[in-house]
Write a protein that binds this DNA or RNA. Structure first.
Lengths: 221, 221
DNA sequence: CGCCAACTTGATGGCTGTCAAGTCAGGTGG
DNA sequence: CCACCTGACTTGACAGCCATCAAGTTGGCG
Protein backbone atom coordinates (compact mmCIF):
# COMPACT_ATOMS: atom_id res chain seq x y z
CA UNK A 1 0.00 0.00 0.00
CA UNK A 2 2.54 2.66 0.92
CA UNK A 3 4.96 3.29 -1.87
CA UNK A 4 8.64 4.04 -1.51
CA UNK A 5 9.43 1.33 1.01
CA UNK A 6 12.20 -1.26 0.74
CA UNK A 7 11.66 -5.02 1.06
CA UNK A 8 12.96 -4.90 4.56
CA UNK A 9 10.69 -2.02 5.39
CA UNK A 10 7.75 -3.95 4.06
CA UNK A 11 8.58 -6.88 6.30
CA UNK A 12 8.38 -4.62 9.27
CA UNK A 13 5.11 -3.23 8.00
CA UNK A 14 3.62 -6.66 7.52
CA UNK A 15 4.48 -7.46 11.05
CA UNK A 16 2.81 -4.24 12.12
CA UNK A 17 -0.50 -4.58 10.37
CA UNK A 18 -1.15 -8.22 10.95
CA UNK A 19 -4.36 -7.71 12.83
CA UNK A 20 -7.57 -7.77 10.82
CA UNK A 21 -11.11 -7.14 11.76
CA UNK A 22 -14.29 -8.11 9.97
CA UNK A 23 -17.50 -6.14 10.26
CA UNK A 24 -21.02 -6.98 9.26
CA UNK A 25 -23.21 -4.51 7.47
CA UNK A 26 -24.41 -1.90 9.93
CA UNK A 27 -21.72 -2.59 12.50
CA UNK A 28 -19.70 0.23 14.02
CA UNK A 29 -15.93 0.26 13.60
CA UNK A 30 -15.70 2.97 16.25
CA UNK A 31 -17.98 5.49 17.87
CA UNK A 32 -17.76 9.04 19.05
CA UNK A 33 -15.93 9.08 22.36
CA UNK A 34 -14.19 5.74 21.89
CA UNK A 35 -10.59 5.73 22.96
CA UNK A 36 -8.35 6.15 19.92
CA UNK A 37 -5.73 3.47 19.48
CA UNK A 38 -5.50 2.54 15.83
CA UNK A 39 -5.91 3.68 12.31
CA UNK A 40 -7.86 1.38 10.04
CA UNK A 41 -7.17 0.64 6.40
CA UNK A 42 -10.18 -0.63 4.53
CA UNK A 43 -9.30 -3.93 2.85
CA UNK A 44 -12.72 -4.63 1.45
CA UNK A 45 -16.18 -3.24 1.83
CA UNK A 46 -17.53 0.23 2.31
CA UNK A 47 -17.86 2.63 5.24
CA UNK A 48 -19.35 5.93 6.16
CA UNK A 49 -18.25 8.32 8.87
CA UNK A 50 -20.67 10.75 10.42
CA UNK A 51 -21.17 13.13 13.30
CA UNK A 52 -24.30 13.90 15.24
CA UNK A 53 -25.63 17.08 16.79
CA UNK A 54 -27.39 16.99 20.14
CA UNK A 55 -30.72 17.53 18.45
CA UNK A 56 -30.23 14.45 16.32
CA UNK A 57 -29.21 15.98 13.02
CA UNK A 58 -26.59 13.92 11.28
CA UNK A 59 -23.78 14.94 8.97
CA UNK A 60 -22.04 12.29 6.91
CA UNK A 61 -18.41 13.39 6.67
CA UNK A 62 -17.15 10.78 4.25
CA UNK A 63 -17.47 7.45 2.50
CA UNK A 64 -14.46 5.13 2.56
CA UNK A 65 -13.70 2.26 0.23
CA UNK A 66 -10.90 -0.29 -0.14
CA UNK A 67 -7.47 1.25 0.35
CA UNK A 68 -8.72 4.27 2.24
CA UNK A 69 -8.00 5.16 5.84
CA UNK A 70 -10.28 5.55 8.83
CA UNK A 71 -9.62 6.98 12.26
CA UNK A 72 -7.46 10.04 11.62
CA UNK A 73 -9.98 12.11 13.56
CA UNK A 74 -8.99 10.37 16.77
CA UNK A 75 -5.34 11.39 16.89
CA UNK A 76 -5.91 14.92 18.13
CA UNK A 77 -7.74 14.17 21.37
CA UNK A 78 -7.01 10.44 21.59
CA UNK A 79 -10.73 9.89 21.36
CA UNK A 80 -12.73 9.44 18.22
CA UNK A 81 -14.79 12.45 17.25
CA UNK A 82 -17.14 10.68 14.85
CA UNK A 83 -18.79 7.34 14.18
CA UNK A 84 -17.61 4.91 11.52
CA UNK A 85 -20.13 2.37 10.23
CA UNK A 86 -19.78 -0.44 7.71
CA UNK A 87 -22.29 -0.04 4.89
CA UNK A 88 -21.69 -3.61 3.79
CA UNK A 89 -19.79 -6.56 5.17
CA UNK A 90 -16.23 -5.33 5.32
CA UNK A 91 -12.72 -6.01 6.48
CA UNK A 92 -10.11 -3.62 7.83
CA UNK A 93 -6.45 -3.72 8.82
CA UNK A 94 -6.01 -2.55 12.37
CA UNK A 95 -2.87 -0.44 12.68
CA UNK A 96 -2.02 0.51 16.25
CA UNK A 97 -1.05 4.14 16.07
CA UNK A 98 1.70 4.20 18.66
CA UNK A 99 3.43 1.50 16.70
CA UNK A 100 2.93 3.43 13.49
CA UNK A 101 4.49 6.49 15.07
CA UNK A 102 7.32 4.45 16.46
CA UNK A 103 8.05 2.88 13.12
CA UNK A 104 7.67 6.24 11.43
CA UNK A 105 10.64 7.45 13.42
CA UNK A 106 12.76 4.81 11.77
CA UNK A 107 11.31 4.62 8.30
CA UNK A 108 11.37 7.99 6.63
CA UNK A 109 9.17 6.73 3.80
CA UNK A 110 6.50 5.56 6.20
CA UNK A 111 6.55 8.83 8.07
CA UNK A 112 6.24 10.75 4.87
CA UNK A 113 3.46 8.53 3.67
CA UNK A 114 1.45 9.10 6.82
CA UNK A 115 1.86 12.84 6.50
CA UNK A 116 0.73 12.78 2.93
CA UNK A 117 -2.31 10.72 3.75
CA UNK A 118 -3.34 13.16 6.46
CA UNK A 119 -2.74 16.12 4.22
CA UNK A 120 -4.74 14.50 1.43
CA UNK A 121 -7.64 14.14 3.83
CA UNK A 122 -7.43 17.84 4.63
CA UNK A 123 -7.45 18.69 0.94
CA UNK A 124 -10.37 16.36 0.30
CA UNK A 125 -12.33 18.16 2.98
CA UNK A 126 -11.55 21.49 1.36
CA UNK A 127 -13.24 20.10 -1.72
CA UNK A 128 -16.27 19.10 0.30
CA UNK A 129 -16.43 22.59 1.76
CA UNK A 130 -16.46 23.99 -1.77
CA UNK A 131 -19.21 21.54 -2.63
CA UNK A 132 -21.35 22.41 0.36
CA UNK A 133 -20.66 26.10 0.43
CA UNK A 134 -20.64 27.13 -3.19
CA UNK A 135 -22.39 24.59 -5.38
CA UNK A 136 -26.01 24.08 -6.27
CA UNK A 137 -27.79 20.80 -5.68
CA UNK A 138 -27.33 19.35 -9.14
CA UNK A 139 -23.66 20.31 -9.17
CA UNK A 140 -23.13 18.59 -5.85
CA UNK A 141 -24.72 15.38 -7.00
CA UNK A 142 -22.89 15.39 -10.33
CA UNK A 143 -19.58 15.98 -8.54
CA UNK A 144 -20.40 13.19 -6.13
CA UNK A 145 -21.12 10.68 -8.88
CA UNK A 146 -17.96 11.64 -10.75
CA UNK A 147 -15.92 11.31 -7.57
CA UNK A 148 -17.27 7.82 -6.88
CA UNK A 149 -16.61 6.85 -10.48
CA UNK A 150 -13.05 8.12 -10.24
CA UNK A 151 -12.26 6.30 -7.03
CA UNK A 152 -13.83 3.06 -8.18
CA UNK A 153 -11.99 3.04 -11.48
CA UNK A 154 -8.73 3.73 -9.64
CA UNK A 155 -9.42 0.45 -7.82
CA UNK A 156 -9.99 -1.49 -10.99
CA UNK A 157 -13.78 -1.35 -11.01
CA UNK A 158 -15.84 0.01 -13.83
CA UNK A 159 -15.86 3.79 -14.00
CA UNK A 160 -19.25 3.83 -15.65
CA UNK A 161 -21.34 1.33 -13.79
CA UNK A 162 -21.47 0.87 -10.06
CA UNK A 163 -23.61 0.30 -7.04
CA UNK A 164 -24.42 2.96 -4.50
CA UNK A 165 -23.67 1.35 -1.18
CA UNK A 166 -25.34 4.14 0.74
CA UNK A 167 -28.97 5.26 0.93
CA UNK A 168 -30.36 8.41 -0.64
CA UNK A 169 -30.55 9.87 2.83
CA UNK A 170 -26.84 9.28 3.42
CA UNK A 171 -25.95 10.79 0.07
CA UNK A 172 -28.14 13.72 0.96
CA UNK A 173 -26.53 14.15 4.34
CA UNK A 174 -23.09 14.13 2.80
CA UNK A 175 -24.14 16.68 0.17
CA UNK A 176 -26.21 18.89 2.45
CA UNK A 177 -29.45 17.93 0.71
CA UNK A 178 -32.63 16.12 1.66
CA UNK A 179 -33.21 12.61 0.40
CA UNK A 180 -36.14 13.75 -1.74
CA UNK A 181 -33.90 16.20 -3.55
CA UNK A 182 -31.32 13.50 -4.22
CA UNK A 183 -34.01 11.20 -5.56
CA UNK A 184 -35.50 13.91 -7.78
CA UNK A 185 -32.11 14.86 -9.17
CA UNK A 186 -31.21 11.27 -9.96
CA UNK A 187 -34.50 10.98 -11.85
CA UNK A 188 -33.82 14.20 -13.70
CA UNK A 189 -30.28 13.16 -14.64
CA UNK A 190 -31.82 10.03 -16.06
CA UNK A 191 -34.45 11.93 -18.04
CA UNK A 192 -31.67 14.06 -19.46
CA UNK A 193 -29.76 10.99 -20.55
CA UNK A 194 -26.82 11.64 -18.25
CA UNK A 195 -27.18 8.46 -16.22
CA UNK A 196 -29.28 5.35 -15.86
CA UNK A 197 -30.39 4.64 -12.35
CA UNK A 198 -32.36 1.76 -10.97
CA UNK A 199 -32.37 1.61 -7.22
CA UNK A 200 -28.77 1.33 -6.12
CA UNK A 201 -27.41 0.63 -9.60
CA UNK A 202 -26.03 3.59 -11.46
CA UNK A 203 -24.62 3.80 -14.93
CA UNK A 204 -22.94 6.98 -16.12
CA UNK A 205 -24.05 7.47 -19.73
CA UNK A 206 -22.48 10.85 -20.27
CA UNK A 207 -19.71 11.72 -17.83
CA UNK A 208 -18.75 14.69 -19.95
CA UNK A 209 -22.25 16.02 -19.46
CA UNK A 210 -21.91 15.58 -15.72
CA UNK A 211 -18.59 17.39 -15.75
CA UNK A 212 -20.23 20.21 -17.67
CA UNK A 213 -22.82 20.52 -14.93
CA UNK A 214 -20.17 20.83 -12.21
CA UNK A 215 -18.16 23.58 -13.81
CA UNK A 216 -20.75 25.60 -15.65
CA UNK A 217 -23.25 26.99 -13.23
CA UNK A 218 -22.31 30.02 -11.26
CA UNK A 219 -20.13 31.05 -14.09
CA UNK A 220 -20.03 33.73 -16.67
CA UNK A 221 -22.55 33.46 -19.53
CA UNK B 1 3.94 26.46 21.26
CA UNK B 2 4.35 22.70 21.24
CA UNK B 3 3.91 21.24 24.69
CA UNK B 4 5.72 18.22 26.08
CA UNK B 5 9.19 19.18 24.93
CA UNK B 6 12.28 19.35 27.09
CA UNK B 7 14.56 22.38 27.33
CA UNK B 8 17.00 20.75 25.02
CA UNK B 9 14.28 19.92 22.56
CA UNK B 10 13.17 23.52 22.61
CA UNK B 11 16.66 24.68 21.77
CA UNK B 12 16.60 22.54 18.69
CA UNK B 13 13.19 23.89 17.82
CA UNK B 14 14.30 27.48 18.21
CA UNK B 15 17.10 26.77 15.84
CA UNK B 16 14.62 25.28 13.42
CA UNK B 17 12.06 28.03 13.26
CA UNK B 18 14.33 31.01 13.19
CA UNK B 19 13.08 32.35 9.91
CA UNK B 20 10.28 34.88 10.01
CA UNK B 21 8.30 36.53 7.33
CA UNK B 22 6.21 39.69 7.45
CA UNK B 23 3.22 40.28 5.22
CA UNK B 24 1.24 43.38 4.50
CA UNK B 25 -2.53 43.36 4.43
CA UNK B 26 -3.69 41.74 1.21
CA UNK B 27 -0.40 39.98 0.51
CA UNK B 28 -0.33 36.27 -0.35
CA UNK B 29 1.60 33.87 1.87
CA UNK B 30 1.27 31.21 -0.80
CA UNK B 31 -0.87 30.50 -3.81
CA UNK B 32 -2.47 27.52 -5.42
CA UNK B 33 0.20 25.62 -7.32
CA UNK B 34 3.15 27.04 -5.38
CA UNK B 35 5.75 24.48 -4.50
CA UNK B 36 5.28 23.35 -0.90
CA UNK B 37 8.31 23.70 1.32
CA UNK B 38 7.24 24.97 4.69
CA UNK B 39 4.53 25.13 7.23
CA UNK B 40 3.77 28.54 8.66
CA UNK B 41 2.84 29.37 12.22
CA UNK B 42 1.01 32.65 12.56
CA UNK B 43 2.84 34.83 15.09
CA UNK B 44 0.63 37.86 14.73
CA UNK B 45 -2.09 39.02 12.42
CA UNK B 46 -4.88 37.26 10.63
CA UNK B 47 -5.18 35.11 7.50
CA UNK B 48 -7.74 33.46 5.33
CA UNK B 49 -7.31 30.46 3.07
CA UNK B 50 -9.53 29.93 0.07
CA UNK B 51 -9.94 27.94 -3.09
CA UNK B 52 -11.32 29.01 -6.44
CA UNK B 53 -13.40 27.22 -9.05
CA UNK B 54 -12.71 27.75 -12.73
CA UNK B 55 -15.83 29.85 -13.05
CA UNK B 56 -14.59 32.23 -10.39
CA UNK B 57 -16.60 31.11 -7.41
CA UNK B 58 -14.60 31.28 -4.22
CA UNK B 59 -14.78 29.17 -1.09
CA UNK B 60 -13.05 30.41 2.05
CA UNK B 61 -11.79 27.30 3.83
CA UNK B 62 -10.55 28.89 7.03
CA UNK B 63 -9.45 31.89 9.03
CA UNK B 64 -6.18 31.62 10.94
CA UNK B 65 -5.01 33.70 13.86
CA UNK B 66 -1.93 33.82 16.09
CA UNK B 67 -0.70 30.38 17.07
CA UNK B 68 -2.46 28.58 14.22
CA UNK B 69 -0.84 26.73 11.36
CA UNK B 70 -0.93 27.31 7.62
CA UNK B 71 0.21 25.14 4.76
CA UNK B 72 -0.84 21.62 5.75
CA UNK B 73 -2.69 21.35 2.45
CA UNK B 74 0.61 21.32 0.57
CA UNK B 75 2.11 18.19 2.07
CA UNK B 76 0.11 15.71 0.03
CA UNK B 77 1.14 16.79 -3.47
CA UNK B 78 4.09 19.00 -2.54
CA UNK B 79 2.19 21.86 -4.07
CA UNK B 80 -0.23 24.14 -2.32
CA UNK B 81 -3.86 23.48 -3.13
CA UNK B 82 -5.24 26.77 -1.91
CA UNK B 83 -4.37 30.44 -1.47
CA UNK B 84 -3.42 32.00 1.86
CA UNK B 85 -3.86 35.75 2.21
CA UNK B 86 -3.07 38.09 5.08
CA UNK B 87 -6.18 40.01 6.16
CA UNK B 88 -4.06 42.46 8.12
CA UNK B 89 -0.35 43.10 8.48
CA UNK B 90 0.96 39.86 9.87
CA UNK B 91 4.01 37.85 10.76
CA UNK B 92 4.63 34.11 10.42
CA UNK B 93 7.29 31.60 11.43
CA UNK B 94 8.54 29.75 8.40
CA UNK B 95 9.13 26.09 9.28
CA UNK B 96 10.77 24.10 6.47
CA UNK B 97 8.86 20.86 6.38
CA UNK B 98 11.70 18.49 5.55
CA UNK B 99 13.48 19.75 8.63
CA UNK B 100 10.34 19.32 10.69
CA UNK B 101 10.04 15.75 9.50
CA UNK B 102 13.69 15.11 10.15
CA UNK B 103 13.49 16.47 13.66
CA UNK B 104 10.23 14.62 14.21
CA UNK B 105 12.14 11.39 13.73
CA UNK B 106 14.26 12.29 16.73
CA UNK B 107 11.82 14.06 18.97
CA UNK B 108 8.85 11.90 19.73
CA UNK B 109 6.99 14.82 21.28
CA UNK B 110 7.41 16.92 18.18
CA UNK B 111 6.24 14.12 15.94
CA UNK B 112 3.23 13.55 18.11
CA UNK B 113 2.47 17.25 18.17
CA UNK B 114 2.52 17.49 14.41
CA UNK B 115 0.18 14.54 14.11
CA UNK B 116 -2.21 16.06 16.59
CA UNK B 117 -2.21 19.37 14.81
CA UNK B 118 -3.05 17.71 11.50
CA UNK B 119 -5.75 15.61 13.10
CA UNK B 120 -7.21 18.66 14.78
CA UNK B 121 -7.47 20.33 11.41
CA UNK B 122 -9.35 17.32 10.08
CA UNK B 123 -11.74 17.46 13.01
CA UNK B 124 -12.23 21.19 12.58
CA UNK B 125 -13.21 20.61 8.98
CA UNK B 126 -15.71 17.99 10.05
CA UNK B 127 -17.31 20.73 12.11
CA UNK B 128 -17.41 23.01 9.11
CA UNK B 129 -19.06 20.25 7.08
CA UNK B 130 -21.72 19.98 9.77
CA UNK B 131 -22.15 23.73 9.64
CA UNK B 132 -22.47 23.87 5.88
CA UNK B 133 -24.44 20.70 5.41
CA UNK B 134 -26.89 20.68 8.26
CA UNK B 135 -27.31 24.12 9.78
CA UNK B 136 -29.51 27.02 8.83
CA UNK B 137 -28.12 30.45 8.14
CA UNK B 138 -28.63 31.90 11.60
CA UNK B 139 -27.13 28.83 13.24
CA UNK B 140 -24.06 29.09 11.04
CA UNK B 141 -23.46 32.70 11.88
CA UNK B 142 -24.06 32.17 15.59
CA UNK B 143 -21.64 29.23 15.59
CA UNK B 144 -19.12 31.34 13.71
CA UNK B 145 -19.27 34.19 16.19
CA UNK B 146 -18.98 31.82 19.14
CA UNK B 147 -16.02 30.09 17.53
CA UNK B 148 -14.21 33.38 16.98
CA UNK B 149 -14.97 34.40 20.55
CA UNK B 150 -13.62 31.11 21.85
CA UNK B 151 -10.39 31.27 19.90
CA UNK B 152 -9.76 34.90 20.76
CA UNK B 153 -10.31 34.40 24.45
CA UNK B 154 -7.97 31.40 24.38
CA UNK B 155 -5.34 33.88 23.16
CA UNK B 156 -5.98 36.34 25.96
CA UNK B 157 -8.24 38.69 24.06
CA UNK B 158 -11.74 39.60 25.15
CA UNK B 159 -14.27 36.87 24.52
CA UNK B 160 -17.09 39.37 24.23
CA UNK B 161 -15.76 42.19 22.15
CA UNK B 162 -13.68 41.85 19.03
CA UNK B 163 -13.05 43.06 15.54
CA UNK B 164 -13.99 41.13 12.44
CA UNK B 165 -10.87 41.14 10.33
CA UNK B 166 -12.72 39.80 7.31
CA UNK B 167 -15.43 41.29 5.14
CA UNK B 168 -19.08 40.20 5.13
CA UNK B 169 -18.41 38.55 1.81
CA UNK B 170 -15.58 36.45 3.25
CA UNK B 171 -17.71 35.44 6.22
CA UNK B 172 -20.45 34.53 3.78
CA UNK B 173 -18.12 32.49 1.63
CA UNK B 174 -16.89 30.57 4.65
CA UNK B 175 -20.44 29.92 5.83
CA UNK B 176 -21.95 29.17 2.45
CA UNK B 177 -24.05 32.35 2.51
CA UNK B 178 -24.26 35.55 0.51
CA UNK B 179 -22.95 38.75 2.00
CA UNK B 180 -26.46 40.23 2.13
CA UNK B 181 -27.62 37.34 4.26
CA UNK B 182 -24.71 37.80 6.65
CA UNK B 183 -25.46 41.48 6.91
CA UNK B 184 -29.16 40.90 7.52
CA UNK B 185 -28.49 38.31 10.17
CA UNK B 186 -26.03 40.53 12.02
CA UNK B 187 -28.68 43.24 12.05
CA UNK B 188 -31.30 40.81 13.30
CA UNK B 189 -29.03 39.47 16.04
CA UNK B 190 -28.58 43.06 17.12
CA UNK B 191 -32.33 43.76 17.13
CA UNK B 192 -32.79 40.69 19.27
CA UNK B 193 -30.22 41.91 21.76
CA UNK B 194 -27.80 39.08 21.12
CA UNK B 195 -24.95 41.25 19.86
CA UNK B 196 -23.97 44.80 19.16
CA UNK B 197 -22.43 45.34 15.78
CA UNK B 198 -21.01 48.46 14.25
CA UNK B 199 -19.06 47.83 11.10
CA UNK B 200 -16.26 45.47 11.99
CA UNK B 201 -16.75 45.80 15.74
CA UNK B 202 -18.79 43.10 17.41
CA UNK B 203 -19.82 42.72 21.00
CA UNK B 204 -21.50 39.56 22.17
CA UNK B 205 -24.24 40.66 24.59
CA UNK B 206 -25.79 37.26 25.11
CA UNK B 207 -23.54 34.33 24.25
CA UNK B 208 -25.96 31.95 25.92
CA UNK B 209 -28.61 33.15 23.50
CA UNK B 210 -26.27 32.49 20.60
CA UNK B 211 -25.54 29.02 21.89
CA UNK B 212 -29.26 28.41 22.13
CA UNK B 213 -29.62 29.30 18.47
CA UNK B 214 -26.94 26.81 17.42
CA UNK B 215 -28.36 23.81 19.21
CA UNK B 216 -32.08 24.35 19.07
CA UNK B 217 -33.24 24.50 15.52
CA UNK B 218 -33.75 21.28 13.65
CA UNK B 219 -34.34 19.51 16.83
CA UNK B 220 -37.04 17.56 18.51
CA UNK B 221 -39.53 19.49 20.66
C1' DC C 1 -46.27 -14.09 1.46
C1' DG C 2 -46.26 -10.01 3.94
C1' DC C 3 -43.98 -6.37 6.07
C1' DC C 4 -40.99 -2.53 6.23
C1' DA C 5 -37.38 0.38 4.88
C1' DA C 6 -36.03 2.69 0.97
C1' DC C 7 -37.42 5.17 -2.66
C1' DT C 8 -40.30 8.09 -6.00
C1' DT C 9 -43.27 11.72 -7.13
C1' DG C 10 -46.45 15.66 -6.41
C1' DA C 11 -48.05 19.99 -4.12
C1' DT C 12 -46.85 23.75 -1.40
C1' DG C 13 -44.10 26.92 1.31
C1' DG C 14 -40.21 29.37 3.18
C1' DC C 15 -35.44 30.40 3.45
C1' DT C 16 -32.01 32.48 1.22
C1' DG C 17 -30.31 34.28 -3.26
C1' DT C 18 -30.70 37.96 -6.56
C1' DC C 19 -31.24 42.53 -8.03
C1' DA C 20 -31.36 47.20 -6.84
C1' DA C 21 -30.80 51.47 -4.40
C1' DG C 22 -28.93 53.85 -1.05
C1' DT C 23 -25.64 54.78 3.25
C1' DC C 24 -21.36 54.87 5.55
C1' DA C 25 -16.40 55.07 6.49
C1' DG C 26 -11.88 55.69 5.34
C1' DG C 27 -8.34 57.10 2.34
C1' DT C 28 -6.56 60.30 -1.23
C1' DG C 29 -5.55 64.35 -3.50
C1' DG C 30 -6.26 69.08 -4.23
C1' DC D 1 -8.50 70.56 5.96
C1' DC D 2 -12.10 69.25 3.27
C1' DA D 3 -14.35 67.20 -0.67
C1' DC D 4 -14.54 63.42 -3.15
C1' DC D 5 -14.37 58.66 -4.27
C1' DT D 6 -14.48 53.98 -3.68
C1' DG D 7 -15.20 49.71 -1.40
C1' DA D 8 -17.85 47.84 2.22
C1' DC D 9 -22.08 47.57 4.08
C1' DT D 10 -27.31 47.93 4.81
C1' DT D 11 -31.95 47.44 3.54
C1' DG D 12 -35.96 46.44 0.57
C1' DA D 13 -38.60 43.85 -2.97
C1' DC D 14 -38.99 39.84 -5.33
C1' DA D 15 -38.01 35.20 -7.01
C1' DG D 16 -36.32 30.58 -7.18
C1' DC D 17 -34.38 26.61 -5.24
C1' DC D 18 -34.81 23.30 -2.18
C1' DA D 19 -37.26 21.67 2.14
C1' DT D 20 -41.38 20.02 3.90
C1' DC D 21 -45.43 17.37 3.97
C1' DA D 22 -47.93 13.75 1.97
C1' DA D 23 -49.14 9.71 -0.82
C1' DG D 24 -47.95 6.12 -3.11
C1' DT D 25 -44.52 2.29 -5.07
C1' DT D 26 -40.85 -0.92 -5.00
C1' DG D 27 -37.81 -4.42 -3.52
C1' DG D 28 -35.58 -7.16 -0.09
C1' DC D 29 -35.77 -10.03 3.78
C1' DG D 30 -37.71 -12.73 7.38
Amino acid sequence: MPVGLSEEDLDQLDQLVFLRRSLRRGEHLFRLGDRFQSLYAVRSGFFKTHILMEDGREQVTGFQMAGELLGLDGISTERHSCDAVALENSEVCVMPFDRLEHLGRELEALQRHLHKVMSREIVREHGVMMLLGSMRAEERLAAFLLNLSHRLSARGYSAHEFILRMTREEIGSYLGLKLETVSRLLSRFQEEGLITVQQKNVRLQDSAGLRRIVGNEGGAP
